Simulated scan of single mutants.
Amino acid sequence: MNRFLAIVEREMRKFFRSPVLMIMSMMLPIVQLIILGHAYGGHIQGAKVAVVDHDGGPQAVKVREAFDAVAANIATFKTINYENETQAKEDVRTGKVDAAIIIPAQYSRRVYAKDAPRIGLLVDNSDQVMSGSIESEMQSLVNALNQPVIEDRVVKNIALQIVELYPYVEYMKYLLSGSVALAMYISVMIGGGMLYIDDKARGVHEGYLVTPISKLELVMGLNVAGAIKAVLSGISITVIGSLMAGLGVIFRPGADLNLFLLILGTSLAFNGMMFLMMVRVDDPLVPRAMFGVLNTLLFFPSGAISPVSAFPKWLQAIALVDPFSYSVHGLKAILLKDGGFVAIRGDLIFLFAFGIGTLLLATPLFKRTL
């Protein structure tokens, strides 16, 4: 046991003697959480919409008043008056405005005559986020305009009452789980995979074998040290990210225990996966070259950025065997929903089984390289 702990102590001392390495292993997830959390998932504001009014009647004035209400309140878009429909379309195409609304001639007359009045909306659908927000807001305005001034005695329309189980989830909160998992992955990759290959290239592992340390003790020591680094990184980002995102779940002891189990299982899974991939690698440049590829292959299909159900079938198959997916799902279940142990039981089973399985596969391969 003393020999095993000596390896763990040596790896941890080496890790803590490199403060830049520690900072960089946590900096990317924090920066990603801040930038992406504010850049995505927010409400579109300040879009410029051209309005071409060919009618000028009272119903057209009512439509323009609705536009002014949008600009004064939620400010999704503000309108710019155009006289020329052709110029409005050209400005949408060139990006000077984000959309154009066309109120056709005889619009008011057709409203009074109930003769299928129409309002045209021209959008630049090369930007799906912007066009989708404008279309959604316009549809809401049209629905409001369609409401009768005097309600019928018999209700003909069915209303949908939406009940949200949780308070509004900002995108920063949604992204936090992925940032925690990413921080642990970076810690394992930099503090485990890269240092492991560097030590192996310098002959440090062979030097251990001239001591009473056995190969099994060496394997276990390296992996336990790697898991400790990942756990420390996961706990740090969970606390920092939760405070930044305004999540108070970390102040509940039961949730803290579940989070620790998830972080422990994730660290074991990531460390076992990295050890299995690097066990037969000798070139120190290989893990550096693999870093970006693995990050893209494992992080983005995990559901950290968007739901897995939106992926094509082949990408869903990757998510099914990706430990990132189970880590992100479990962290969301606790951080966003406070779901308890039942909600993460399946995730924990996969993470621990994956971690133990990869270590059992990697251990005999490691022994053959010495």
Rank of each mutant, 00 (worst) to 15 (best):
K62E: 13
Q161F: 03
A113E: 09
E164F: 14
T296R: 04
Q45Y: 01
L361Y: 00
L121G: 10
D152M: 11
D127A: 11
A319L: 05
Y171D: 09
I263Q: 13
V63C: 03
R153F: 15
F354V: 07
P323D: 00
F77G: 02
I44G: 06
A50E: 00
D347F: 00
G221S: 05
R118L: 09
D198W: 13
F350G: 00
V231N: 11
G132Q: 10
G303M: 10
A69W: 12
I250K: 11
A317Q: 11
V224P: 02
G292L: 10
G234I: 14
E83I: 00
A159E: 04
P364V: 11
K215T: 04
P301A: 12
A353V: 09
V154T: 02
K229W: 13
N143D: 14
L276F: 12
A50C: 00
G303L: 07
A245N: 14
D338E: 15
Y168E: 15
Y112R: 08
H38V: 03
A310G: 15
V70R: 10
P148H: 06
L370D: 11
N295H: 11
G357Y: 06
L218A: 05
I318A: 04
G254V: 08
L336D: 14
P148R: 07
V308R: 07
D199A: 12
I263C: 12
S233P: 10
K332V: 07
L285A: 14
R110T: 00
R288F: 12
G132Y: 02
L298R: 06
N146H: 13
L243I: 13
I158K: 12
Y40Q: 05
A39H: 00
M130P: 04
F350Y: 10
L176D: 05
A227F: 03
P212H: 10
L264N: 11
L294F: 15
K114Y: 12
M194D: 02
Y208A: 03
S108R: 08
L243K: 02
I197E: 01
I35K: 06
L216C: 03
F366D: 07
A343R: 00
G254T: 11
V70L: 10
F15C: 15
F67Q: 09
V279W: 01
G303Q: 11
V188G: 03
A116I: 02
N157Q: 12
S136T: 08
G57C: 03
E85F: 01
K14H: 14
V123T: 02
K48S: 10
P212W: 12
L222P: 03
M273K: 08
Q32M: 15
T266M: 02
Q147G: 06
L247K: 09
T86M: 07
S177K: 10
A47C: 04
V342C: 09
A66V: 15
